[in-house]
């Protein structure tokens, strides 16, 4: 099977002269169709730079990106743009406060020419319905919605564009846990129903454990470990991965035990 997205030896440097910062170094990985790949790392690990390159916000300094078996140029065609969408961390800022949520969702439809102009409002309403919001929400301003509802709108915006790959940049870390659980379920259901692929960027390993198929661990711009989710949690190869898991605040006895075993294994 061809991977939906491939990164081949991708690097990115910022600045010039004496002030060069290497944000991403020689990173290669694949995302298969229908797969959820978690990108895990702390601040400065290069997660956001990676997301911006996948989204075409800026180009890579070296290396290649491939999408669906073809090279992905930095200057994206509308087709590429519609296929790769973004859901941001903070839905309060990712939706324009002065426009209705419907207008935000519709933007992609207008840009890509999806549906005839007269049908687009009903497509917007259908997308809202898919994320579990009432159709008449399209006329509301973002301020009238709760945090979870706003994040659902952001997801609807990505869906309405008929995307195939969604970059989820900390999609639930600004939400309360009860809301987070519902949004994560929604993301899981949508992936299954539509065969979407996710690049799920997060620092929360307990979320990763329950939504990702594979995990890529980043540190200082480098990919230090990439493996199936189960393997990462039961048998992490890198100390850094172990540290990350050890730092997760947990609530149950079993989790504390798992952490303790990882910690003692790390010392031997």
């Amino acid at each position: 099977m061809t991977p939906l997205l491939s990164l081949k030896n991708v690097s990115k440097t910022f600045g010039h002269g004496d002030h060069i910062v290497q944000a991403v170094r020689d990173v290669s990985f694949d995302v298969m169709p229908g797969e959820c790949l978690a990108v895990v790392g702390e601040s400065g690990s290069g997660k956001t730079t990676l997301a911006n390159m996948i989204l075409g916000v800026f180009g890579q300094s070296s290396g290649e990106l491939w999408f669906d078996g073809k090279p992905l140029p930095t200057r994206r065609t509308l087709e590429h743009r519609s296929a790769i969408q973004l859901v941001q961390q903070n839905p309060l800022s990712s939706l324009n406060p002065k426009r209705s949520v419907g207008a935000s969702v519709r933007l992609g439809l207008d840009v890509y020419g999806i549906g005839s102009p007269s049908d687009r409002w009903s497509l917007v309403e259908a997308a809202l319905e898919e994320v579990g919001l009432p159709r008449d929400f399209r006329k509301r301003p973002p301020a009238a919605l709760s945090g979870g509802q706003r994040q659902r709108v952001a997801i609807a915006r990505a869906l309405a564009c008929q995307s195939r790959l969604v970059v989820l940049d900390e999609p639930t870390s600004a939400l309360d846990v009860l809301v987070q659980a519902r949004v994560l379920r929604l993301l899981n259901d949508l992936r299954a129903a539509k065969g979407l692929s996710y690049v799920f960027i997060t620092h929360d390993l307990s979320v990763v454990r329950n939504v990702a198929d594979r995990v890529a661990v980043f540190k200082s711009g480098q990919l230090v470990e990439c493996a199936e989710t189960g393997a990462i949690f039961e048998n992490p190869r890198e100390d850094y991965t172990r540290q990350l898991i050890g730092a997760v605040p947990v609530v149950t006895r079993e989790e504390i035990e798992l952490r303790n075993t990882l910690a003692t294994e790390g010392q031997t």
Partner: peptide
């Protein structure tokens, strides 16, 4: 710098 501008740019507006 707001997220909604990034969102519109990513969409390609």
């Amino acid at each position: 710098e707001e997220g909604y501008v990034l969102a519109a740019e990513v969409i390609g507006a």
